[in-house]
Design a binder for these strands. Structure first.
Length: 419
RNA sequence: GCCCCCAUCGACUAGCGGCCCAGGUCACGGCCCUUUCAAGGCCGUAGCGCGGGUUCGAAUCCCGCUGGGGGCACCA
C-alpha cells in the first residue's frame, strides 16, 4: 500500500519556516515511497482566516519545489458531512447535545496509546481527556473533529506533524475509533524553536518563506537546511540535493528534541549552493531575484557582474550593497593627502593603458605601486575605495575592467581631486 | 495546577552497552594563501544537566531530580 500524507496549513497568514519544515518531512516521505501528498487547508476557524493566505501558501510551496497531489481541499467543505456523522454519533450515544453544540463523550478510564512513528509508544490517561466539541452551536465543525474525520475520509496513512499536536492525538484516536475508522500512523516531529527557546510561530520570530526568498536564499539550500533540522542522514553528510533528500529521508531518523534555527549556518549553506551554480545559472538567478525586488538595473550588466561576486556573497540580497557601484556611481570618498596622490598616480597609469582588461590593469597598477615603493595592499586600497566606494569589493582589476575606461578614470579623478 | 514531550560542544547533530578520554557541519580562534572581502587549505577551543541504580563495562538501559518545551477552548 502506498502511503498517503497530507500537509494541513491553516490560512491564518503566510507560510513560515517552521511549518514548511513539517511539510517537507511529509513531502519527502510521500515522494520517497511513491505515495501521495495532499494539501488541505484547515479553515474551520473562519474568524482567523486571512485573505490571500491560501494563495501565498501555494506560491511559497511552489517556489520551494514542494508539490502536492490532487486538488487543494478546504476543511470547511467537509462541514456538512461532519455534522451528519456527529449526529449519528449522538444517536449511537457516543456524543451528546450540549447547549446546541455536539460534544463527544470521552472515556474516563483506561489509557489511549499509540506507537508514534518517531517517538515510540505514547500513552495518555483517559481521565485527562475532556468531552470535546465536535460541532459548534453554529453548525461548523471544530478542528479536532474535522481533522481526523478528513484523515479517515482521505485514507491518510501517516500523519506527520509537529509535536505540539501530541496532546491532540489521543482525542483524535478516540474519535476515529468511534467512527470505526482505521488509525493512521502518527509521527510527531520536534518543533522548531526561536532564539529564546520558545516555539517558533507566525507571531513569534518565524520568518515567512516570502521573507527568506526576498533576502536572497535559494530554494534548494532552504530545503537542505530545513531537512537537517530534526533529521539527519548519518554522522557526516550535510549537503544533499532535493533528490538525495527524497532518496534518503526516513521517519526513523527523525529526532525527538526541538531544534533552534541557526541563520549563520543557513547563510553558509546558501553560499555553498550559490557557489555551486554554473556562471550562467548564477547570472540568471541574480537577474530573476533583482527583478522580483523591483530593481531596474540592466540585466546584461548584472550577468557580467555575476562572476565577480559569485564567490563572495552568500545571499543574493547582498548583491546591491556589494556590487551596486557597477550601476550607480558611489559618493566621492574623503581620502587623505597620500591616498589622493596614489589615486592620481593610478589614474595617470591607467590613462595610458592600451588594452582595457583585468590582466593589463593588474600589471600596470603593480608597476605603479612598485615604482612608488608601495606594497600592493597599501597601493590598491585607496584605488579600490575611489573606484568602488568601499573597502570591501569584488576583485579590483576585474571590477575596473567591467566598469570601463571612462567611468573608472572619472571616478579616480573625482577622488583624487576631492578635498 | 494537571497531562504529555524533550535533554550530547554556543547552534544543528552522529552515537541505539565495549569501536567514544565522544565523530561531522556551522559559528568562534590561530596559521597559510592573498589587491579588500570571500573562497580554499591546515590546526585548534568547546559538549554527554545532576543524583542514584543495572552491568565486568553507560553518553547509550532503569528510577528520581532539575531544566526546557508543548497542551489542557464552541483556536488550529
Amino acid at each position: 500500500m502506498n502511503p498517503r500524507v497530507r500537509m494541513a496549513p491553516s490560512p491564518t497568514g503566510f507560510l513560515h519556516i517552521g511549518g514548511v519544515r513539517t511539510f517537507l518531512f511529509n513531502w519527502l516521505f510521500a515522494r520517497q515511497h511513491g505515495g501521495e501528498c495532499l494539501l488541505r487547508i484547515e479553515n474551520t476557524d473562519t474568524s482567523r482566516e486571512v485573505a490571500e493566505s491560501v494563495e501565498q501558501i501555494q506560491a511559497s510551496l511552489r517556489w520551494l519545489g514542494i508539490d502536492w497531489d490532487g486538488p487543494i481541499t478546504f476543511q470547511l467543505d467537509a462541514m456538512e458531512r461532519c455534522k451528519v456523522v456527529a449526529e449519528r454519533l449522538v444517536e449511537e450515544g457516543k456524543a451528546y447535545v450540549d447547549d446546541g453544540a455536539i460534544r463527544f463523550r470521552m472515556p474516563d478510564e483506561g489509557v489511549t496509546a499509540w506507537d508514534d512513528g518517531v517517538r515510540g509508544r505514547i500513552e495518555f490517561p483517559n481521565e485527562q481527556l475532556e468531552d470535546l466539541v465536535l460541532v459548534r452551536s453554529d453548525g461548523r465543525s471544530t478542528y479536532n473533529f474535522a481533522s481526523p474525520f478528513e484523515d479517515a475520509e482521505d485514507e491518510i496513512t501517516h500523519v506527520i506533524r509537529g509535536d505540539d499536536h501530541i496532546s491532540n492525538t489521543p482525542k483524535q484516536i478516540q474519535i476515529l475509533q468511534a467512527l470505526d475508522a482505521p488509525l493512521p500512523v502518527y509521527a510527531h516531529a520536534p518543533n522548531l524553536l526561536g532564539d529564546d527557546g520558545k516555539k517558533l510561530s507566525k507571531r513569534h520570530g518565524a520568518l515567512s518563506i516570502e521573507e527568506l526568498r526576498a533576502a536572497g536564499y535559494v530554494a534548494p539550500a532552504l530545503l537542505n537546511f530545513l531537512a537537517l533540522l530534526g533529521w539527519s542522514y548519518d554522522d557526516k553528510t550535510t549537503i544533499m540535493s532535493r533528490d538525495e533528500l527524497i532518496e534518503r529521508f526516513s521517519l526513523e531518523r527523525v529526532g525527538s528534541s526541538p531544534a533552534t534555527l541557526d541563520y549563520q549556518k543557513l547563510d553558509w549553506m546558501n553560499g555553498v549552493y550559490l557557489r555551486a551554480m554554473s556562471p550562467e545559472d548564477y547570472g540568471d538567478a541574480l537577474v530573476t531575484y533583482l527583478r522580483e525586488q523591483d530593481s531596474e538595473w540592466d540585466a546584461e550588466r548584472v550577468r557580467q557582474a555575476a562572476p565577480l561576486v559569485q564567490e563572495k556573497i552568500e545571499r543574493l540580497g547582498q548583491f546591491p550593497e556589494f556590487a551596486g557601484f557597477f550601476f550607480e556611481r558611489p559618493p566621492i570618498p574623503g581620502l587623505d593627502q597620500q591616498e589622493r596622490s596614489i589615486v592620481a598616480a593610478a589614474k595617470r597609469a591607467l590613462e595610458a593603458l592600451e588594452s582595457w582588461d583585468a590582466p593589463a590593469v593588474d600589471v600596470r597598477l603593480r608597476a605603479m605601486a612598485d615604482a612608488d615603493g608601495l606594497k600592493p595592499r597599501d597601493a590598491f586600497q585607496p584605488i579600490r575605495v575611489a573606484v568602488t566606494g568601499s573597502k570591501v569589493s569584488p576583485g579590483l582589476f576585474e571590477s575596473i575592467e567591467l566598469l570601463g575606461r571612462d567611468e573608472t578614470l572619472a571616478r579616480l579623478e573625482a577622488a583624487a581631486g576631492a578635498v
